[in-house]
């Protein structure tokens, strides 16, 4: 291949004046992590609420939960980000819209909300599925010793369901990290965006993207190992969650 490799470019100063290109990528990594973690919290909270709602014995609530899931699942993430970023501020009352548009961390906050709600529909599906795979008798046994519905969920169904869900939730968290790259379209300088900027400034296309690739692979490995450790810590002797 007729390409002039120059790895030293990573240590050359970047035109943004904040250190080297490597520092630029590291800044990107920080934004990727911050965005993914915050969006994941949003996804977990809303996804759990909606996921539980879909398993409760009220038809209308389950329907509402289904509608929520379908709404956020069937519109591409990029389009959802554009809706949050460009459209929602226009639809708010004028003063609010101006306030939202002038927020200092606008792209970051938009990404957290947008990716968070997008992922929450996936979390909700996992939560409902996790609860539904538990034997029906578990719910009955909780009820039979006099627990209320809320207590049955709190002490019996959810602790088991979350253990069963841990592997799929891990991959949803990894998806959240990957999805955070979509936020470069609304101006968030996360890792992919930083690599893209480095490529544009330095013309060293492959160093930029190779470095980003390696960082993503490392991030992926760290999260996977971390979650495996968590899985082992919360595993219940004699109970195989894989069954």
């Amino acid at each position: 291949m007729d390409y002039h490799w120059n790895w030293a470019i990573l240590w050359a100063p970047s035109p943004d004046g904040n250190g080297t290109y490597f520092d630029m990528l590291m800044d990107g990594l920080k934004w990727t992590i911050a965005t993914s973690v915050c969006a994941w919290l949003v996804a977990l909270v809303f996804g759990s609420l909606v996921g539980v709602a879909r398993t409760l014995p009220f038809k209308w609530l389950a329907r509402l939960g289904d509608a929520y899931v379908e709404l956020f699942r069937n519109i591409p993430l990029l389009v959802q980000l554009f809706l949050w970023f460009f459209v929602i501020p226009e639809m708010l009352p004028h003063d609010w819209g101006t306030f939202v548009k002038q927020l200092r961390y606008g792209p970051f906050l938009t990404a957290v909300v947008g990716i968070g709600f997008y992922m929450s529909s996936r979390v909700a599906m996992q939560v409902s599925a996790g609860i539904n795979t538990l034997p029906r008798g578990q719910r009955m046994a909780g009820t039979a010793i006099g627990l209320t519905t809320a207590q049955t969920y709190r002490y019996i169904l959810l602790p088991m369901a979350y253990r069963i869900m841990l592997p799929p939730l891990t991959s949803e968290f990894l998806n959240t990290i990957k999805n955070s790259s979509v936020a470069l379209t609304i101006g968030l300088m996360e890792l992919t965006g930083s690599a893209r900027a480095m490529q544009e400034f330095s013309f060293q296309v492959f160093e930029a993207f190779t470095a980003a690739t390696v960082i993503y692979l490392l991030l992926n490995a760290v999260v996977t190992i971390g979650m495996r450790m968590l899985e082992r810590r919360v595993s219940v002797p004699g109970f195989n969650a894989g069954k």
Binding site: M1, D2, Y3, L174, I177, K178, N179, S180, S181, V182, L184, T192, A195, R196, Q199, V205, F206, F209, A212, T213, Y216, L217, N220
Partner: peptide, 21 residues
């Protein structure tokens, strides 16, 4: 493990070189 956006960029720039090769 990679975001699709990154792969889109990477391949977009990589492909001319692979074609050359």
């Amino acid at each position: 493990a990679l975001p699709l956006v990154l792969v889109i960029f990477l391949f977009y720039f990589l492909m001319p070189y692979i074609g050359q090769w």
